[in-house]
Design a protein around this nucleic acid. Structure first.
Lengths: 166, 166
DNA sequence: CCTCTCACTTGATATAGTCTCAAGTGAGAG
DNA sequence: CTCTCACTTGAGACTATATCAAGTGAGAGG
């Protein structure tokens, strides 16, 4: 007996051409996994975007907002707000950048580093939850395919490429 | 020489644990391909979400909003607004559902069907653009993996599942 | 009838993206 | 050595899009 709606069988989408279906799948998978992850992160008081930011910082060391936004593929304005949140919670802080008074270096605080560790643990749980039942082969194929898509010449909206070819 | 930011190499993400990286890849790929698709659809005066709705309707015949929202994995409120847009542009219309005066059946108009055809052509172009350089194997693997993820027991946020296991 | 559920609508809120601006930087001209 | 000019960084205002919650009217069961 199902409560409201069905999880997977809700979208067979077999009547759609492959590319359209892939796009919709992408959309659905992303939306759902983001939601699941956000809920799992709730005890930490942050959401996916905050954790991703912290995790990148933890992996790279202090970065400017500009650089961070690039790595996260976010608008710099969006990132600015995320950094605001993180500062408010004392998870990260803007420090003056020695060489350039326009830019700030975003540093993790000790508590921020702790959140990263906790977040990774949660991420691993959620990952098992979402991807765990995929065979390692499928799992790797997913990752590989996504990276390939990003490597596509036309994958960056900033570089439109020509749609109108003979 | 690059203009502002780099497309693919902006996110090596190699310093992140695999699941986190996959999540971010998913996010990036989705956001970018949506953007590219939306821009390609601009001549039609609609966006991805409208086209997806039209395309599903075209594949299934008239549906209630409820059913449509399920198939598209959208909030019924979101779908309501999409249908508003479509009606405003005379691409679809709400017709009374014979047996039930609460529900409407959403029907495509002739112009709506034309838009579906045009949209599919555009989708195919964008698809080639985004996915075209993937090997058919990788291409199929992507699709397969995404469907598998959706088939996961924990993929539906509505069915939380237990995160706290020994 | 009375109540419970369902389909849809509407309003409030949050989140992301775009555009614009102020401040800072760096290079070249005079 | 300074002035000017083009460019970068980040912040803020504005817009739109999505989600959630409450409300309305219709069906269905007792």
């Amino acid at each position: 007996m199902r409560s409201t709606r069905s999880p997977a069988d809700s979208a067979p989408l077999d009547f759609l051409p492959p590319d359209v279906a892939t796009g919709m799948l992408l959309s659905t998978v992303h939306r759902r996994s983001q939601k699941v992850f956000n809920e799992a992160l709730r005890p930490l008081g942050i959401e996916e975007r905050h954790f991703a930011t912290l995790a990148v910082l933890d992996g790279t060391g202090p970065l400017t907002q500009r650089r961070l936004a690039d790595l996260l593929d976010l608008d710099k304005s969006s990132l600015g707000r995320i950094v605001d949140d993180l500062e408010r919670q004392r998870l990260a802080e803007r420090r003056p950048l020695p060489g350039d008074r326009r830019a700030h270096a975003i540093h993790l605080t000790e508590q921020g580093r702790q959140h990263v560790r906790d977040g990774h643990r949660i991420a691993a749980q959620v990952g098992r939850h979402l991807f765990g039942h995929l065979s390692p082969r499928t799992r790797a194929a997913l990752d590989h395919a996504l990276r390939e898509v990003l490597a596509a010449p036309g994958a960056d909206p900033a570089t439109p490429g020509d749609e109108s070819r003979p």
